[in-house]
Amino acid sequence: MNNMKKYLTLLCFILVPFFQGAAQKITFTPQWTPQSQFAGYYAALENGYYDEAGLDVSIVHPTTSYSSMNMLLDGTSDIITSELIQAMTATKQGVRLVNILQTTQHSTLVLISHIKDINKMADLAGRRVGTWKVGFSEIPHIIDEKEGLGIEWIKFITPLNLYISGAIDATIGKSYNEEILFSMSGITPGSILRFSEIGFDYPEDGLYVSEEFYKKHPEQCRKFAEASRKGWEWVRNNREEALGIVMKYVKEENVPTNIYNQKWMLNTILEVQEDVKGNAPSYKLNIEDFNRLNELLIQYGYISKPVEYKGFIGE
């Protein structure tokens, strides 16, 4: 028995360093199917930045009807990307999120309409307007609710055919995706309303983990964020190669898209990562932007009390 104890103790000594050095398994889920919007993470994985950080990362995409937030909530994913407003209001879905990296700094939300001369949300009062089934459209919704515009929101997975068929009058979209996609599909919209130009310019994409996960694995979170940032910086300087990586992921998932679409998307994404003056990305969530969004959410009654910046941002 003593011998047995000795052997077991010896085995522990041998195995503990091995386990300590073993890579941490992390499942990462971006907020949509493969596209240039997530080029930095693909690049970090392909270039081995996560490996170098001692992380064993696997990227699992959501489906078009089952979001990354759902996957975080059901425990499939450890780290997700999300838009700031969704992350700040995630408590509604029963989880507190922690921002570990802020990538984009501006709103890319657009409202593409068959109707001409749409200059504000109120111009679409009583109309049928498409909106993602999985979110991304909180601001138009809270404006509608607050201003009582009576918009008939039509949830969609992808809005293109819905829009072309004439089943909706307008649709929410992203400047880096739907706006380009619609144009490439031969559509000439009646008008395009940009939320960034009507007083709703807020940061969007960022990396998030649950508060629980963050408390358990702060170092891994920091490493993941740092490697992701490195991935984005590489993409900024190697756009053509980055596009090749994106297209590889696109093909693996059989996403119907093309390199032209992804190229324009990547350019737009990299642009909104810069600040208004075109300075290099900070990858940080500015407290002023955070507070502005807090004020908006309270003003429009979307949340009752402000979200704490300190707990929301990883240290």
Partner: peptide, 23 residues
């Protein structure tokens, strides 16, 4: 939606539109 349904280059089918490359 201008996507190719038939194209000698099968890679373009449902991936590209006739306006993609000239965007």
């Amino acid at each position: 939606n201008s996507s190719y349904i038939v194209n000698p280059n099968r890679d373009l089918i449902l991936n590209e539109t006739i306006f993609s490359s000239t965007y």
